[in-house]
Design a protein around this nucleic acid. Structure first.
Lengths: 114, 114
DNA sequence: GATACACTTAGCTATATGGCTTACCAACAA
DNA sequence: TTGTTGGTAAGCCATATAGCTAAGTGTATC
């Protein structure tokens, strides 16, 4: 569980930056080289590479160097971990509002039968 | 869209910390006072209040002071924004794998009819 | 009115983050 | 062999973050 917590730390941190979210959005559509990914950004290459490192460290993407080109691809499982956590909160929230609704309905029913 | 981007920045940043995620998990089950929320953490109160501020700034929670007690509650809409973004990526990813699957199946079908 | 409680404010420290520039290196291409 | 391309490494700077302590403030409670 502790490992899971740390993973969520890094995943949510990685997604807390617009540049890195844009990289994720690009990679879910297909793998791409670092230069392709960097092109839309007015940013020094070493700075952009730092973002790639953050994404890779978080497990959201994987990369591999072939010759002089580093190609990145998404790791959908890790994105799923963040989704799972949020869905768990939603389930708790929905479950709670369901119980509240039931409670209110129970009270309403009791009033009707008096 | 720019506003949306900034919102996602702060939401994902807020969730990038185990203490803050624990607060969110508690609040989806019902509102709670700051002291109740802080109790499980071995942390100075001003430190914990900083986390609460981060969550409030991100819009994930709301708080209100009544007398000397500040009560916090979840804002499910903001959590939904993060969920929406992740679901959009998953849709792109699934759509892409679907297209690949179709392509492979088309090739397989062509082989069979030869 | 004194005391306790629940924060709030201010300031500090150490670390992390996100950008930059410069120089370098490995791998192609001409 | 030289030039170009695609990174990589190192170091710098400014800002942000995450914790702390101490002191203060407003609101109950006794």
């Amino acid at each position: 569980m502790a490992y899971q917590q740390t993973a969520l730390d890094t995943v949510f941190h990685a997604l807390a930056d617009p540049t890195r979210r844009a990289v994720v959005q690009k990679l879910v559509q297909g793998s791409a080289s670092v230069m392709e990914l960097a092109e839309p950004f007015e940013m020094a290459l070493p700075s952009f590479m730092k973002h790639v490192q953050v994404l890779e460290t978080s497990g959201l993407i994987r990369s591999q160097k072939t010759g002089r080109v580093r190609t990145c691809e998404i790791n959908p499982e890790r994105l799923g971990a963040a989704e799972t956590w949020i869905n768990e909160q939603r389930a708790l929230w929905v479950g709670r509002t369901d119980r509240l609704t039931d409670h209110v309905e129970t009270l309403a029913t009791k009033k009707e039968t008096k």
